[in-house]
Amino acid sequence: MTPGDGYADQAAAAWQRAAAARERASRADDSARRHDEWAREPGRELHEDLAAALRTTAACHRSSAQLQEGFARRMTRWAQGRGARPQFMTGVAEACGTPSAALTLVDSGQGQLAVAASDEVARAAQELEFILGEGPTRDATATGRTVVATHMVLEERWPCCGPALTALGVREVAAVPLSTPDVSDVCLGALAVFDPRPGLVGSQAFAEIVGALTRTVLLDPDADPELYGGTDHRDVVQQAAGMVSVHIGRRVDDALALVKARAFSLGMPLETFARGIVSGDFRLTPEGRS
């Protein structure tokens, strides 16, 4: 893509979303102050809890505003210069003190539905989990808990995925489930950060970034789960699975598993391999590639 390709619209949309988020943050702060007053009356401690909850909400909106503003600035700078088109996730990763972060959206069965990655490492890491069906992100969405693993643990806990991750140069992974506030049974996916800044996990700032992604990026009425075109739905891979299911006469799930397995054994990026199938360069049979 070249500068001018909708960049002005995207930058404008990001500024608008940032302004809306700041507005929401200040409304939540106002409400929190009101509850503070009510909490001063005797027997009304309950309002302290509500005020605290409102302040958390306000902080998430502010974090969201910062991410949108950061993206808007990047788009504007990119339009004036060169380099790769900015990704929304690049700003998320930077806020976590790393170049590599990925947002993975899953279905109720923890299957990956879409991925947005800040860089090649994050993208490759999510692809490994997609292919191998195991890894920190999958565990985070399955358990609803934050998963943190370093080098040795990575390799022990996920015998297939772990060594592949360390081979990418990853030394530490933190994966946080994106659950809606108060509802742990609804999990949209996870944010995985690779080699994050020390002390990030468990910090208030990190919780606010996760909250911002969940609430304002994914769930608000004006949310943009497409992340300005940065979300990858693996369309070509699904198309390839559909084709292979016809070629081998099996269910599409089996076909998808076969596509993944062949790409992995060939050491080829899944997308590239899938493109080869769709274009007719590769044809899979139950016995092997022909």
Binding site: Q238, Q239, G242, S245, V252, V278
Partner: peptide, 8 residues
């Protein structure tokens, strides 16, 4: 997936 099935 359906596009892929139909295409094949």
């Amino acid at each position: 997936q359906a596009k892929g099935v139909l295409a094949a």
